[in-house]
Amino acid sequence: MNCFSHNAAPAVGVCKACQKAVCVECSIDTGRGLACSPACEKEVGELNLIMDKSKQIYSIGVTSKLPHTAVLMYSFFGLVFCSAAIYQYATRGRFDFISSAFGLGFLVFGMLAYIRNKRLNLNC
């Protein structure tokens, strides 16, 4: 593969921003990727910033003992609704179908979210 600007020169890499092949003369090493121009150098910096922020948001590379936030919320709401249904049954002697359905639904969603996040290796 040859350089995009210098057709005779062999390429040493690809610009991280525009994906054009670059030779030694054209390449600008940003430390975390090659750029072919000052405009692309700025773009590479922004791409690296986006990747760093995404890693922080999704906690990539970080292990956590706590489950995913959605799992905690679904489980909390599931337990609240199931507790309300049990309380209704214990105090009034009638089965509260709505509360128990919501509670079981939230618990199922919590379990599905937990399984999904484990498969995707997400820790946020």
Results as ranks from 00 to 15, higher is better:
Leu34Phe: 09
Glu25Met: 08
Gln88Thr: 13
Tyr58Met: 11
Val22Gln: 02
Cys26Pro: 01
Met51Val: 04
Ser100Asp: 04
His6Glu: 03
Thr69Asp: 13
Thr69Phe: 10
Asp96Leu: 10
Leu66Tyr: 13
Gly103Gln: 07
Tyr87His: 11
Arg116Tyr: 14
Glu46Asp: 06
Ser54Arg: 11
Asn48Lys: 00
Gly61Arg: 08
Val62Glu: 15
Asn7Pro: 05
Ile115Trp: 09
Phe77Cys: 04
Gly31Met: 08
Ala11Leu: 09
Ile115Arg: 13
Gly61Asn: 13
Ala90Pro: 00
Ser27Arg: 14
Glu43Leu: 02
Leu104Met: 10
Val71Asn: 03
Asp29Thr: 12
Glu43Trp: 01
Met111Asp: 02
Ala70His: 08
Ile60Gln: 09
Cys15Thr: 08
Arg116Asp: 14
Pro10Asp: 07
Glu25Tyr: 08
Thr30Ser: 11
Gly31Lys: 06
Phe77Ser: 09
Arg94Asp: 14
Met51Asp: 12
Asn117Ser: 14
Ser64Cys: 08
Val24Ile: 14
Ser59Glu: 03
Ala90Cys: 07
Ala8His: 05
Leu49Glu: 15
Ala101Ile: 04
Met111Ser: 13
Ile28Gly: 01
Ala90Gly: 03
Cys124Ala: 07
Ser99Phe: 14
Lys53Val: 09
Cys3Lys: 01
Ile50Trp: 00
Asn121Ile: 10
Val24Gln: 15
Cys82His: 06
Ala70Trp: 05
Cys26Met: 08
Ala35Asp: 01
Val12Ser: 00
Leu49His: 13
Cys40Leu: 11
Gly13Trp: 00
Ala11Gln: 06
Ala8Ile: 09
Ile50Lys: 09
Ile86Ser: 12
Gly93Glu: 11
Arg32Leu: 07
Leu47Tyr: 07
Phe102His: 12
Pro67Leu: 02
Lys16Ser: 06
Asn7Tyr: 06
Pro10Phe: 04
Gln56Tyr: 06
Arg94Gly: 08
Asn48Gly: 03
Ala35His: 01
Tyr89Ser: 12
Ala8Asn: 10
Leu49Gly: 11
Tyr74Thr: 09
Gly103Val: 08
Ala70Asp: 12
Gly45Arg: 00
Leu66His: 14
Thr30Glu: 05
Glu25His: 10
Tyr74Met: 14
Ser99Thr: 03
Met73Val: 10
Asn123Asp: 05
Gly105Cys: 13
His68Ala: 12
Asp29Cys: 10
Ser64Phe: 00
Cys36Asn: 04
Val14Thr: 12
Thr63Arg: 05
Phe77Tyr: 14
Val12Pro: 01
Arg119Val: 09
Ser54His: 12
Gly13Pro: 02
Leu122Thr: 13
Gln56Val: 13
Asn7Trp: 05
Gly45His: 02
Val12Trp: 01
Gly110Ile: 06
Leu34Gln: 02
Ser37Lys: 11
Arg116Leu: 12
Asp96Met: 05
Asn117His: 15
Phe97Tyr: 04
Val108Trp: 07
Ser100Tyr: 13
Ala9Tyr: 01
Ile60Ser: 03
Gln19Tyr: 03
Gly78Gln: 10
Ala35Val: 02
Glu46Cys: 00
His68Asp: 15
Gly78Trp: 04
Pro38Tyr: 01
Ile60Arg: 06
Leu34Arg: 01
